[in-house]
Design a protein around this nucleic acid. Structure first.
Lengths: 157, 157
DNA sequence: AAATTAGTTCGTTTTGTTCCGAACTAGACG
DNA sequence: CGTCTAGTTCGGAACAAAACGAACTAATTT
C-alpha cells in the first residue's frame, strides 16, 4: 500500500499539533491524524501499521489509549476477524471540548492570582484592578463561544 | 528570607498549570509564577534562588529562556551589579498573545484538513461541508476576542 | 486437533528532559 | 593587578516517556 507524500506530510504536521493540543504521545497523534484523513470505512490494525510504520505493540497500546479517550472506536464485519478503526469525532471538536473544561481551571487561577496580589501588592491594582476582570470576562466569552460552536457542529451530525 | 506558605503553595499550583499552558519547563514555570506574585520592584537572582531553592545554573538557564520568550525582563540600579528580574506582562497577557499566534496555525491546519478531505473523501462533505466553516468562524471569532481583550488591557497598563 | 490470524502483554532499549555542580567569564572595586 | 560579585556554560546523573521485539492469548479456519 503506497500512501501519497501529501498524506504523510500532513500526518507529521498535524500530528505535531495534536500532540500538544490534545496531550497525546507522538504515535497516538499520528494514528489519530491518519484516521481523520481516512475514509469513514476506517482502517485495519495492519493498514495503520503499514502506513505509519509502527510496531504491533506500540500500535496496540496507542489505539487503546485513543479508544479510552473516546477519540477513536472500531467496528467489525461479520465473517472478518479484523477491526476497522475510525475517529469518533473531528479532532477540532475534541479539542473544543477539552478547552471548555480547561477554561474552568484558568478562571479559578486568575481569581487566585488576583486575590493574592490584591492583598500583598495593592500597588499593582491602582488602575489595574480591572485587568483581572477583563481576563475573567475574556475567559467566559470564550467558553460561551465554544459552547455555541459545539452546538452548531452537533446539529450537523 | 522567609516566604509564606501561601506563596509557596501558589507557586507550585500555578506553576503546574503554566507548565502546560505556556509550555515551560517546571523550573521556568515556578520562576515565572514567583515573579507574577512579587512586587513590581523585581527580585534578584539570589532572591529567586533562595525562595525556589534552585541551583545557579538552572536558574540562569531558565531565566534566559523566560527572557527570550519575552515573559521576563530585568533592570539594574546604578552602583549595584545585581539584576532585578520582573515579569514584562501579566501572564494572562502573554498567554493571550501566544494563543493569538497559535490560532493562525490552527486556521491553516483546518484549511489543510478540509481541502485534503474534500479531494479524497468528498462523501465526508455531504452535509458536513460546513463543519470546516464553523470551525474557521470559531477560530476567527476567538482571534477577534483576543485582540479586543489585549486592547482593553493595554489601555489600563 | 493443528495452523493461522489478529491483537495484547511484558520486559527491555532508546530517546529525551530536567536539573545539578564545577569550572569558567566579565565587570567593578580596592 | 588581583579579588570579589554576579551570572554563564558545560558535562553528566537521575529520572521519565516512547517505542520496540518476543512471547503470549483468543478466536477462527482448515
Amino acid at each position: 500500500m503506497s500512501v501519497s507524500t501529501e498524506k504523510k506530510k500532513l500526518i507529521e504536521e498535524i500530528g505535531l499539533q495534536l500532540e500538544s493540543r490534545l496531550n497525546l504521545a507522538p504515535l497516538a497523534a499520528r494514528i489519530y491524524t491518519l484516521l481523520t484523513l481516512s475514509s469513514k470505512e476506517g482502517l485495519t490494525f495492519e493498514q495503520i501499521r503499514e502506513i505509519i510504520g509502527s510496531s504491533k505493540s506500540s500500535t496496540s497500546v496507542n489505539l487503546k489509549i485513543l479508544m479510552q479517550l473516546k477519540h477513536v472506536d472500531y467496528y467489525t464485519k461479520s465473517g472478518d476477524r479484523k477491526r476497522y478503526f475510525r475517529i469518533t469525532t473531528y479532532f477540532q471538536l475534541s479539542a473544543l471540548k477539552i478547552d471548555y473544561q480547561a477554561l474552568e481551571n484558568e478562571i479559578l487561577l486568575v481569581e487566585k492570582i488576583n486575590s493574592y496580589n490584591k492583598v500583598h501588592h495593592p500597588e499593582k491594582f491602582k488602575n489595574e484592578e480591572s485587568v483581572g476582570d477583563i481576563i475573567r470576562n475574556y475567559l467566559k466569552s470564550r467558553q460561551t463561544l465554544i459552547a455555541e460552536t459545539i452546538d452548531k457542529i452537533n446539529k450537523h451530525g
